[in-house]
Design a protein around this nucleic acid. Structure first.
Lengths: 207, 208
DNA sequence: AAGTTACTTTTCAAAGC
DNA sequence: GCTTTAAAAAGTAACTT
């Protein structure tokens, strides 16, 4: 009589952080002057900030020719953004290679276990977990296998961060789901019809 | 003989001097906040362990002492909100929180999970409420836990709402703001938790 | 009281203080 | 350790209307 239509976990990549080595030293002052959209305050931060609008991707460009790209939601957008940035730099005095080396450093994904989680119980049963509702509503779980950190909320929604590949995210999310089911802290809505005791009279409150 | 004394003094300064500073700071916090003596003693023990494991390196005595006191109060079931502690320390909440996490990870101590019930007595005490109100509030919190309404919520906010509802049920007339201030949260939070609890637990509030 | 905006947590690289 | 970027989750806070 139990329909096993448990959806299982789902997830979506929200942000990819990658480093790019252009291999050439850059004159940030000159670039900042030619690119009015660029932000460059060396006193505040050594990198020049460029924001692309199509897919909203930001780049931090350094004197050494190294660059950090953030905001991409998939590797394809990331590649296109890097190409666009290279062209933009070359159109404004720089001379960088067309296909620089790109390394994904961090992937952030959001998702859902499609089941509510008893965070208090999970905190007691999981090894590397920290749950401090006074400071943050999510349970912080450090996974060692794929080395990632997952924020788990009572609603079953999760955030996986620290992954180096999309596969790591998928593996981590599935492993987390299996572990939480195993220790029995996942609950599907219907569950056992719990009661809500009555306490007093009826009426409306108004001030 | 002089060199021997200097050597001993040097050994003592690395450990003893820091410990004495922490003890003075904890004594100051106790007076300023009205923390029970057992909590200060427990905090001193935690601080001593932190010193032995060299966790105080590169950190301010104040931040580590505040973190130790926060942890001690929770271990002895008389929690004080971190934001309340922060008002009496020079250290930023960021560093105190960082020290607390370091102590949590490096010392093999078990700090009980924040329990809204432990904040009920504090709120009731400040507002001088009756034991019956406290009992009803605890009842409400226990039902809320069973109904899965407490996950991720600030225990102080839950306690404030539970005591507020209990007061209404017992005919007391205190404003939401009174409970919010007593619990150290905003009226908005008390109102949100109150509505949520009253609706989910189907509690009917009598018109006064 | 509703809306906004903003901050809490986690992750990661870059260069320099 | 800090500075800057991005992004999500859910809760709390601080303003404005």
């Amino acid at each position: 009589m139990e329909s096993s239509k448990r959806q299982g976990p789902t997830h979506k990549i929200e942000n990819i952080v990658a480093t790019v080595n252009l291999g050439v030293e850059l004159d940030l002052e000159q670039l900042a002057e030619k690119l009015p959209v660029a932000e460059y305050n060396p006193d505040q931060f050594p990198g020049l900030i460029l924001r692309l609008t199509k897919p909203r991707i930001s780049a931090l460009i350094f004197r050494t020719g190294k660059m950090v790209c953030t905001g991409a939601k998939n590797e394809n957008d990331l590649k296109n953004a890097v190409h666009a940035l290279v062209k933009l730099l070359n159109d404004h005095g720089a001379n960088v290679p067309l296909n620089p080396e790109v390394q994904v450093q961090n992937i952030v994904a959001s998702g859902s276990l499609n089941a509510e989680v008893d965070l208090e119980q999970a905190a007691l049963l999981l090894e590397n977990a920290m749950y401090e509702p006074e400071q943050f509503p999510g349970l912080i779980y450090r996974m060692t296998d794929p080395r990632v950190v997952v924020l788990i909320f009572g609603s079953g929604k999760i955030v996986c961060t620290g992954a180096k590949s999309e596969k790591d995210v998928a593996v981590a999310v599935q492993q987390l789901y299996d572990k939480l089911r195993e220790i029995g802290v996942l609950y599907v809505e219907e569950g056992g019809g719990e009661e809500a005791e009555e306490l007093e009279e009826e009426g409306e409150e108004e001030e | 003989r002089l060199r021997k004394w200097q050597t001993r003094a040097r050994v003592q300064t690395s450990y003893e001097r820091n410990f004495v500073q922490a003890a003075q700071e904890l004594e100051r916090l106790k007076s300023a906040m009205g923390v029970p003596r057992p909590c200060v003693e427990q905090a001193l023990e935690i601080y001593r362990q932190a010193l032995e494991k060299e966790l105080v390196r590169g950190r301010s005595v104040e931040a580590m002492a505040a973190a130790a006191l926060y942890m001690a109060c929770r271990m002895l079931k008389t929690p004080r909100p971190l934001d309340e502690l922060i008002r009496f320390t020079k250290a930023s909440r960021r560093e105190v929180a960082r020290c607390y996490r370091l102590l949590l990870r490096e010392l093999n101590v078990r700090v009980p999970i924040s329990d809204p019930v432990l904040y009920i007595s504090r709120v009731a005490e400040q507002l001088k409420l009756t034991g019956d109100v406290v009992k009803t509030a605890i009842d409400i919190i226990n039902k809320a836990k069973k109904a899965g309404l407490t996950a991720g919520k600030d225990p102080a906010g839950l306690a404030a709402a539970a005591v507020y509802i209990a007061s209404l049920l017992h005919g007391d007339n205190r404003t939401q703001k009174d409970f919010a201030i007593a619990a150290g949260v905003t009226e908005v939070t008390v109102r949100n938790r109150y509505k949520e609890l009253a609706k989910a637990l189907d509690i009917k509030i009598p018109i006064k």
